[in-house]
Amino acid sequence: MTTTTQAPPVTVPTRQAGSRRRVRPARLVLHAFLICVAVGWLVPLLLAVYASLRPYAETAARGYFSLPHKLSFDYYVDAWQRGGQPRYFINTLLIAVPSVLLTLFFASFVAFLISRRRIRFGKFLLIAFTAGNLLPQQVLATPLYVMYSKIPLPWWMSWPSELLYDSYWGVIAIHVAFQTGFCVFVLTNYMDTVPQELVEASIVDGAGVWRQYWHVILPLVRPALGALGTLEFAWIYNDFFWAVILMSTGDKFPVTSALNNLRSVYFTDYNLLAAGSILVALPTLLVFFILQRQFISGLTLGSTKG
């Protein structure tokens, strides 16, 4: 979905606009405002990073808003080693990557049928998918658990439980089911803003459903897919709930669980935990940076002009 060699040229007509040397007072005010906002948004996070560089005994005694005596990356090393993170990172990716890709794939196709092909019962489908997202996921926990613990899987799909319970398949399935509902809704709305004429033209050309979807619609909703992909990855990656409910083998847990390993039953070194959670947040940031170009300013979808 991130193929950069997409055919309808994504024109970059106004890239250079920003470097025009006209400094208008209004722009300066705008920048001043945005800098204030950005700093305000970053401060809590920077404080967390700052705390993670200081020993717990120091922040506990002097408060978080104080000058440092000692700064080091010790906690990061410690968090990486103690949390056993490499393995948990892989576990998380095994869950998150297929979940996000399948979700976006299914959701965009369904949204395409509803929005652009206007299939029968499309609105009904849309509502059914959306409404499934209105309830907090905790509601589904018990029935889902009961169901999962009764569905056997062969050992090469689920070991040692040989059930859908305690398998990645089950966790991926519920992620896809839950998030597809939301994404169908989001993408349908985005596709509604795409001119219908484009699809119609391709139908006249005799293109099949797949071609209309893959070659016509998908490129047009790339900004939405990029934004949604970013969000979905962050959510599924950070999700802890489904793994907790539907898994029981500690070694198969996602990385959010490794963070819990940094807490003791009673005492928690919060600065260590901060270091660990900042490490864990890095991949989601990476995905944001990779996908950001899909919806960043300066790029306009030339093809919307037809």
Partner: peptide, 27 residues
């Protein structure tokens, strides 16, 4: 709009979205 540093501003405002529960609790 076509402004400089747009990407930086966007990133700053988006960052809180990617944080896990543990960071939010700590913050």
């Amino acid at each position: 709009k076509q402004i400089r540093f747009s990407r930086f501003y966007q990133t700053a405002i988006y960052l809180p979205v990617v944080l896990s529960l543990a960071v939010i609790g700590f913050i």
